[in-house]
């Protein structure tokens, strides 16, 4: 990791507010439409329906923010910036670590904003401990998507990276049950949902709100996805750096 570089990237991201605004606004709007309209006493899987939707939408926001680093990587590769970096003492691994950290940082604002919205306007009442746990677990849930961002960044061309990121975000969120609870879909959809990392990150985060505590099985699947996607991302990165 290179702190200077991280600060540089954060400043750039704050200036190009599009990604940030989109990743916050989109889940907020969806939460308002699908969550706030629910009756206050409705519940789903042992937790209030509003809290359920709140967590799902927060996850959706953090996931799309984390994946957006792919666009940055693709653009930098295309512009020859990686060549410039190879002509400095910066270690190539430090670049990758930086982009993953950037992804994880970008994943924070959507979580905080959606949770704050749920707390203030959605009548979601949790203990401070529960808020902290759900926030932390949801944040870790951004890890596999940071890895997907890496993979996309090293595969996609800059002109196709936006549609690829947008489409995969929507497909993963929809089929992973972040937009609509899987339990309300036909059973075949549940099987499909289990093939996406979003299903498991959603499950992990929501489990933080139940009496039973964190769903460790779901958490392990999330970590498994992170390892597999991280491995693919690193392989793509290696191939890219080795090429002249």
């Amino acid at each position: 990791m290179n702190r200077n570089y991280l600060i540089f990237d954060i400043r750039r991201t704050l200036r190009n507010r599009r990604v940030l605004i989109f990743s916050i606004l989109m889940p907020l709007v969806l939460f308002a439409i699908f969550g706030m309209t629910l009756p206050k006493d409705a519940s789903e899987g042992g937790i209030s329906a509003i809290a359920y939707v709140m967590v799902s939408m927060a996850m959706f926001g953090s996931m799309s923010a984390a994946m957006s680093s792919g666009g940055v990587i693709a653009a930098e590769r295309d512009g020859g910036w990686n060549r410039t970096l190879r002509l400095t003492p910066l270690k190539p691994q430090a670049y990758v670590v930086n982009k993953v950290i950037l992804s994880l940082l970008l994943a924070i604002p959507p979580l905080l904003v959606v949770f704050a919205f749920g707390m203030m306007f959605g009548h979601v009442h949790l203990s401070i401990g529960q808020w902290m746990t759900v926030a932390l677990v949801s944040w870790l849930g951004a890890l596999p998507f940071a890895a997907i961002g890496l993979v996309i960044g090293y595969i996609a061309k800059p002109d196709s990276v936006q549609p690829i990121t947008g489409l995969s975000t929507m497909l993963i969120a929809a089929f992973g049950g972040l937009w609509l609870p899987v339990d309300q879909m036909p059973s075949v959809m549940k099987h499909i949902a289990q093939l996406t990392p979003a299903y498991w990150t959603g499950l992990t985060s929501r489990s933080a709100l139940t009496q039973g505590g964190i769903d460790t099985q779901a958490l392990l699947v999330v970590l498994g996805w992170t390892v597999v996607l991280g491995f693919i991302g690193l392989r793509r990165f290696r191939a890219d750096t080795a090429r002249a």
Partner: peptide
């Protein structure tokens, strides 16, 4: 380098500070 090798949405000062920091 002849072309490329820079970040188009960065400011001149930022870019040079970054590169200086890498050396």
């Amino acid at each position: 380098l002849q072309s490329g090798g820079i970040i188009e949405d960065a400011k001149v000062g930022e870019l040079l500070n970054l590169v200086a920091g890498l050396h």
